[in-house]
Design a protein around this nucleic acid. Structure first.
Length: 745
DNA sequence: CGCGAGGATATTTTT
DNA sequence: TATCCTCGCG
């Protein structure tokens, strides 16, 4: 078994797998098979070294990475693998903290505040301390607190360090008050999870020792993204056995803005003098052309670990660069290019990457216009969506009333006539007595000046109590549905009848599905807590299904760790990428980080890489002219296949936007119903189709609504009216030419 | 209390 | 250009 495993590895990978004892730094370039090395290492530890699975801890950054690793370890090792702790830093910390929360003055059921909660709380703190919100914006104060926590600087230390500076002293006060409030709410923010774990280990050496014994072998993925706190946690646990293997690529460190400390990787050998370093330099992913372009760009950074990526793969085709007149043309060009080449590179093989989320809009519009199935990754987090948070806060409130923010959030959602004035009366009352907001609600009859709202508060209280009673014999899913009914939340959305409300209901359905996935007995008292826990730490639902044939649109940041046969890097413009901020900051490090981001982008591509830029682009409302990104110019011109998309294309577009409409390139005529003729721009004309290529009973797909079954087709004057029962959104009436339904199978 | 008008404000992102 | 937030009015 083991020999068989090792045969699948190249020399340095094998070394990385078999060097099990002592600290090991694995410098793994993009596409060099680092996840493979990590998972094989775990398998090797268990099978060859006889290490018990529960003595192994593997830490990753994202849930997705953790999931993937778990999966791959499972495939490799078998059932034993479940005993291996494979988790994100944050969830590992939660697990540890729950067990020992009392030592830090928290109860075991402490709640976790996400960035929205943090903002809300900070707003309250700023108000309470009566500082000028113009000068102390919650966003920047929180950023400062966060980076302090990441550097393991507590509010006390912060105050000590910044005695001299008035403004920072004030910030320190905000920090302290913020922490006080968190503690009162029995809550930790994301950074606290790390910070408190370190504190726990410091104040309870016996606890630390338990974990040192427990985790004799530690692996850390994406090590270049760890911050100081994370490094501390790892080195504390590894302090005894020192069997610590970290895998990273300094060239792919792109999270400095969020506390990642690149020194963690550059200084690893200093902190662990006995450390061995192994480099994985063979790239299995990209063509020679793509890899060479990446190498050229990243070579412009100073202070890297020496490392040269090479590959045995084919030359491939040259990296393309295209400059368009406007961002509009760029998006159009990219999507049309995808359509034209879809024979060779189907939709699912293409990804369009960009620097800022704002850039996705144009691309999205083009996809819709050309009926190209697409998947937008990122944007607003599922669990950060309003409707989801509302429901979660209901569940939190039902679970226990100890989370003030949660209660405050939902007390007037849906509208119950409890306004800001009443809420702040309740808050004052709670404050003055040092009790929880929810307790204040319970005593609403004793609070003067509530007026009409008093009765409403009473109704709210009754409702929550009724739900609590029901919770005792319901599953989480049933409880959720009960909440939707009893509070009128669903009714309110349904009565809205807007597209937006529609998609909210859809999101809610997804949450219910998630709850249904919990295997809980009706009334299981721990189930609700477990559900909330899961939800607090799981960010994006992993909805990027690689089997589906959709063009992926996402930011460069979220592309890390992924690969695609064909990649478009859009918006290669000075001021956008690299961004204005990094150009003007004066810190050359910032520009280097942007360059690393570019490197990450380039190395996502397996076979085809197309970079593009626009001469003009709308930025913050005004037209902006920009030069081609320096990153493009850092690739020698001879290595690029350049094309200017001015004259010919522009003329073609101009002509087509007059007259009868723009006829799409031949290749772009898809299985769309009818002969749709477009004009560019938002409006387009449609012609009624003679015949539809689907009929009643057929399964069809819609870009926005997903899959469904045709239940009726009616002959209209100008168009066919199609009724479709969609799986996710229910029944819809659509005009055939607009809906652009595609038959499945 | 709710709504609409007008002003300020614009990275990147995970947990 | 959009979106978010605040403020003032009904």
């Amino acid at each position: 078994m083991t020999d068989f495993l090792l045969d699948e590895l190249n020399e340095p990978q094998r070394e990385a797998v078999t060097t099990t004892e002592g600290p090991l730094l694995l410098l793994a370039g993009a596409g060099s098979g680092k996840t493979r090395a990590l998972t094989y290492r775990i398998a090797y530890l268990i099978h060859e070294k006889g290490v018990k699975p529960w003595h192994i801890l593997a830490l990753t950054f994202t849930n997705k990475a953790a999931e993937e690793m778990k999966q791959r370890v499972n495939d490799l090792v078998g059932i034993d693998a479940n005993a291996v702790w494979v988790s994100t830093f944050h969830s590992a910390c939660v697990r540890i903290l729950r067990r020992h929360a009392e030592l830090l003055g928290y109860t075991t059921s402490f709640s976790i505040y996400d960035s929205d909660d943090q903002k809300t709380l900070m707003k309250q703190v700023i108000k309470k301390l009566d500082v000028d919100p113009k000068i102390y914006k919650e966003r920047s104060v929180l950023a400062m607190i966060s980076s302090s926590k990441n550097e393991l600087i507590s509010d006390l230390e912060f105050n000590q360090i910044h005695q001299g500076d008035f403004r920072l002293r004030k910030t320190g006060e905000l920090y302290s008050e913020y922490q006080r409030q968190l503690k009162m709410n029995n809550a930790m923010d994301f950074d606290d999870l790390l910070l408190n774990t370190v504190r726990l280990f410091q104040i309870a050496p016996d606890v630390l020792e338990d974990y040192q014994e427990r985790f004799q072998y530690i692996l850390v993925d994406e090590y270049q993204d760890t911050n100081t706190a994370q490094f501390k946690i790892v080195s504390m646990i590894a302090g005894k056995y020192k069997n610590l293997c970290v895998v990273g690529d300094d060239d792919q460190s792109i999270y400095k803005f969020r506390g990642a400390n690149i020194r963690n990787i550059l200084d690893f050998e200093r902190v662990f003098p006995q450390a061995r370093t192994i480099k994985l330099e063979q790239n299995y992913r990209s063509t020679k052309n793509i890899l060479e372009a990446a190498n050229q760009v990243i070579a412009h950074n100073m202070g890297r670990k020496k490392k040269t990526l090479w590959t045995d793969n084919d030359e491939g085709v040259k990296v393309a660069f295209r400059q368009y007149d406007s961002a509009f043309d760029e998006a159009d060009g990219i999507i049309r290019d995808i359509i034209q080449n879809r024979e060779q590179y189907s939709y699912g093989k293409c990804a369009v990457l960009y620097r800022t989320n704002a850039q996705s809009r144009l691309l999205e519009e083009k996809c819709v216009a050309y009926n190209v199935p697409y998947q937008l990754v990122g944007g607003v987090n599922f669990y950060q969506r309003k409707e989801i948070k509302d429901l979660i806060c209901y569940l939190k409130t039902i679970d226990n009333g100890r989370d003030d923010l949660a209660v405050q959030r939902i007390i007037n959602v849906p509208r119950r006539g409890i306004g800001a004035a009443s809420i702040s009366k309740l808050m004052d009352y709670a404050d003055s007595r040092d009790i929880h907001f929810f307790d204040a609600i319970c005593e609403y009859e004793h609070i003067s000046g509530l007026g009409r709202a008093g009765a409403r508060i009473g109704e709210f209280l009754t409702q929550i109590q009724a739900l609590r009673a029901k919770a005792e014999f319901l599953t989480v899913k049933e409880l959720l549905e009960q909440v939707l009914e009893d509070t009128g939340y669903r009714a309110e959305l349904e009565s809205e009848e807007t597209v937006e409300a529609e998609s909210r209901l859809e999101n809610i359905k997804e949450l219910i599905n998630k709850a249904a996935g919990m295997k809980d007995e009706a009334g299981d008292p721990t189930a609700l807590g477990r559900f909330l826990e899961e939800v607090a730490l799981v960010a994006e639902v992993d909805n990027m299904n690689p089997d589906e044939e959709r063009v992926i649109l996402m930011t460069l940041h979220s592309a890390k760790g992924l690969e695609f046969p064909k990649v478009y890097l859009s918006g290669m413009e000075e001021g956008l990428f690299p961004g204005m901020m990094s150009i003007n900051s004066g810190d050359p490090e910032d520009l280097e980080e942007e360059r690393r981001l570019c490197y990450v982008g380039i190395t996502r591509a397996r076979e085809i890489l197309v970079m593009s830029a626009a001469r003009t682009r709308m930025v913050n409302g005004e037209n902006h002219y920009s030069r081609v990104s320096r990153f493009v110019e850092e690739i020698p011109a001879g290595m690029l296949q350049q094309r200017n998309h001015d004259a010919e294309h522009r003329d073609a577009l101009r002509m087509s936007s007059r007259g009868t409409g723009y006829s799409r390139p031949k290749a772009a005529v898809l299985s769309t119903p009818g002969n749709i003729s477009y004009r560019l721009g938002k409006e387009f004309t449609v012609e009624k189709a003679d015949q539809l290529d689907y009929s009643v009973g057929d399964r069809v797909r819609h870009v926005k609504f997903g899959e469904g079954t045709v239940t009726n087709i009616e002959e209209g004057k100008r168009d066919h009216e199609v009724t479709v029962q969609f799986d996710r959104v229910g029944e819809k009436h659509l005009f055939a030419s607009f809906a652009k339904l595609a038959k499945i199978q």
